[in-house]
Design a binder for these strands. Structure first.
Lengths: 344, 344
DNA sequence: ACCGCAAATGATAGCGCTGTCAATGGCCTG
DNA sequence: CAGGCCATTGACAGCGCTATCATTTGCGGT
C-alpha cells in the first residue's frame, strides 16, 4: 500500500497545545514531568498527544536544552563478535538508565575515528566511549577539550585522556607466550591476520617474552593480512605446513585463527597437541567445544562494556571530576586440550 | 589529568564567522559545499575552524534544515552474531553514502520496539529498518504515518508497511524439515531455546511439514527457554538423552544449539550422523569446521543488510513512491556431515 | 477579612543553524 | 559602453522546543 497521501506536516508541540487549549510549555511539562501538572490537564493533553500521534522533535529539544541524553560509542568493527558482545553490554546498561547510544564504526582507521568523534561531539553526546588508546592528535585534542567523560577501553595506557578501562594487551601477549615457554616449548610461532593496534601490542608482548627466554622469533611470525576468520587461520596453517615451518606451539591472535589452524592440522594429519600446541585469544564460546578443546586467553569484554557504561554514567551524573580512573581488567589463561607440556 | 578548567563555552558558527570576519552563513556554506565559496575565504575560514576546534551542532542543523542524514535500525539483540553481521553490512553501505546510523535494541519486545520507533522518529531519521514484521498497533501506525521509507527485514509478510526484504521463516522451517523427511527420517525432533517470533515461524513450518508427511511431533519438541547458546544446545540434548527421547534426526533452531547438541552427542557416545542427524540454521562460520561438519540452512544476512540499506537509500533519494517492494532472499540447505539418509 | 505563600500555568526569549531572497561586483556580448 | 548574467556574499526569519521569570489562583493562619 502506498502511504497515506495527505501532505500533513509533522505535528508539533504547538499543535497539541492548541488542540488541548493550553500553552505549549504546559504540554512540554506534561511530557517531561507529568507530576507537576494537574491531573485533568495532564489527561486532556495526553489524549491529544495520542490522538495526534505526536512525537517530540529531539533536535529542537536538544537545541533548546543543550542536553542530549545520548552517549557515543566508537568501535573498529562490528563484524568481530568481541565488539558485538561489548556493545551489547554497553547498550543494556545505558538504555536502562535512559541514555541513547549512538554507535559509530571507525573501521580500524584513526582518521575515521577522528571523523566519528566529530560526528559524536556535534551531536552533543554526553560521554564518549572509544575502543583503544591511539588517536590522531586532533582527535585527542577534541576529546580533551570536550568537557565530557571520555572512556578508552580494551587497552591500557599510561596517559589516558580521562578514564581508561581494559587490559594490557602487551602483557597478555607476554603472558600467553610465557605460558607456552613454561610448558617447555622453544619454537613458538605467532599467527596473526590484519595487524591492528591491539594485535601489534600482543605481538610485542610475545617478542618480549621470547627475548627474556633467549629465544628468537625469526621466521616464526606467520601472517596473511586479512580479517581474522576461521578460514584465514586454516590458510595460514596450510602455508606453514607447505613451507615446512610448523613450530612446536603457536599463539594465535584470536580464536578464529586458532580454530582454523586446529581444523587444518587435523585435516593434514598433524596431531594437536602432540605435534603442535595451539593457543587462542579471547576465549570465544566455541573454544570450549572445538575438538580438541581450545586453550585460550580469556578477556572480559562483557564486563568491560558493563563497567565502562556504569562508570560513564556515574561520571556524567555525579559531577565528581572522577579522579581519572584506570582499571585493569586483566586476563586469564584457560588451559584446555589444545596445549600440552613438551616432554623434554 | 583533570580537564582544562576554563569554562569556555562551545564554539558556534558565529564565533568562527566573527574571527574570520565573514557572515555566519558563509561559514555554513564553507562547511557544507566548499566549492561555492571563493578559495581565499574558504581557506581563511577553514583555518579558523581548525584553530577553534569548531564542531557544528547537529541539533541546530537538523532543526533548521529538517534533514537529519540519519537512519534508524532496530534489532532485537546484538548478542546474536546474525544481527551483528547484518548490522555491519548496513553500516558499511550507509556510512559510505554519508548517512549516520542509529542502532536501537528492542530486546525482543514489541513494546520496547515501539519505544525505539518513537525515539527514532523523534530524531527525524530518514528511514527505519526494523527486524521482523510484528509490531504493536501503535508502532505500525507510527511507521505508516511517518512518511519515510520503512524496511522490514528477516521475515516476509503479506502485508508489509512499506518495503519488506527477508526470507519466509516458516517456509525455511518447512524446507529444513522436509529435507530430513526426504532423507527417510520419521522421528524428527525440533530443538529451540527462547521462542521468538522467527523461531515460532520456523516451528510452524516444521509442524506443517510433519503434518504433510503424516508424522506427529508429539513429544518431539525439545526446549529450555533461554538464549540460544552452544551450552544450551548441549543441555537440551542432555535432557533428551536422559529422558530417552532421542529422535532419529533433529532440526535445531540455530547453529549454536546444533553445535552444542553435536558436542553433547559425542560426549555421550551417540554417533552423528549414524545415530542421529543434526541440522542447524543460519550456517554460521563454525558450522563448516565442527566435527563432524554441521549441515545447516544458510540464510543471507550480509546480503540482506546490504540490500536493505541500498533500497533504503534509493527510496530516500529518488522519491519514487517505490512500488512497495517485497523481496524474498530465500535460503539454502547446506548439506554436510551431520545429516545422512536413513537406511530403510 | 487580610496577607503571604505554594501550586499551577503562561509569556518571552532564545538555543545554533539553514532556507530564501537580496545585494554586490566583475565580466561578457553586441 | 549599456545591459544582463553569473559568481559571491550577506540579511533575515524562522525550525520546535525549553529555561526562566511572571502571573494567576487557592488556601491557611491570625
Amino acid at each position: 500500500m502506498a502511504r497515506n497521501g495527505k501532505e500533513r506536516k509533522r505535528k508539533t508541540l504547538d499543535d497539541v497545545a492548541r488542540l488541548a487549549r493550553v500553552s505549549p510549555i504546559t504540554v512540554s511539562r506534561t511530557l517531561r514531568s507529568p507530576d507537576i501538572v494537574s491531573p485533568e490537564l495532564r489527561q486532556r493533553i495526553e489524549s491529544v498527544v495520542a490522538k495526534l500521534g505526536y512525537v517530540p522533535n529531539v533536535a529542537a529539544s536538544r537545541l533548546a536544552s543543550s542536553r542530549s541524553h545520548t552517549v557515543g560509542v566508537i568501535v573498529p568493527t562490528l563484524y568481530n563478535v568481541i565488539f558485538a558482545e561489548y556493545l551489547q553490554a554497553l547498550h543494556e546498561v545505558f538504555l536502562l538508565s535512559g541514555f541513547q547510544v549512538v554507535v559509530v564504526n571507525s573501521r580500524y582507521s584513526e582518521d575515521e575515528e577522528e571523523k566519528a568523534i566529530r560526528t559524536l561531539l556535534g551531536q552533543h553526546v554526553e560521554a564518549i566511549i572509544v575502543v583503544g588508546v591511539d588517536h590522531t592528535p586532533m582527535a585527542r585534542r577534541l576529546l580533551l577539550q570536550s568537557r565530557i567523560p571520555v572512556i578508552e577501553t580494551f587497552e591500557l595506557t599510561e596517559n589516558p585522556i580521562n578514564i581508561n578501562i581494559g587490559l594490557a594487551q602487551s602483557k597478555a601477549g607476554h603472558g600467553a607466550t610465557k605460558f607456552l615457554i613454561d610448558q617447555g616449548h622453544r619454537k613458538i610461532g605467532f599467527m596473526v591476520g590484519h595487524l591492528d593496534v591491539r594485535a601489534a601490542a600482543r605481538l610485542n608482548g610475545y617478542k618480549r617474552a621470547m627475548l627474556e627466554a633467549d629465544l628468537s622469533w625469526d621466521g616464526l611470525i606467520a601472517t596473511i593480512s586479512n580479517h581474522s576468520t576461521i578460514n584465514l587461520g586454516a590458510a595460514i596453517m596450510n602455508m606453514l605446513v607447505e613451507e615446512r615451518k610448523v613450530p612446536d606451539a603457536i599463539f594465535c591472535i584470536d580464536d578464529n585463527l586458532a580454530l582454523g589452524a586446529l581444523m587444518q592440522c587435523r585435516k593434514l594429519g598433524l596431531r594437536v597437541p602432540e605435534d603442535i600446541s595451539i593457543l587462542g585469544f579471547h576465549d570465544l564460546e566455541f573454544a570450549a567445544y572445538a575438538s580438541p578443546t581450545l586453550s585460550s586467553v580469556a578477556t572480559h569484554r562483557r564486563k568491560l562494556g558493563e563497567l565502562a557504561a556504569k562508570i560513564a554514567i556515574s561520571a556524567m551524573t555525579k559531577k565528581l571530576p572522577d579522579a581519572d580512573h584506570r582499571i585493569d581488567l586483566g586476563f586469564e589463561i584457560v588451559v584446555r586440550q589444545s596445549t600440552q607440556s613438551r616432554p623434554t
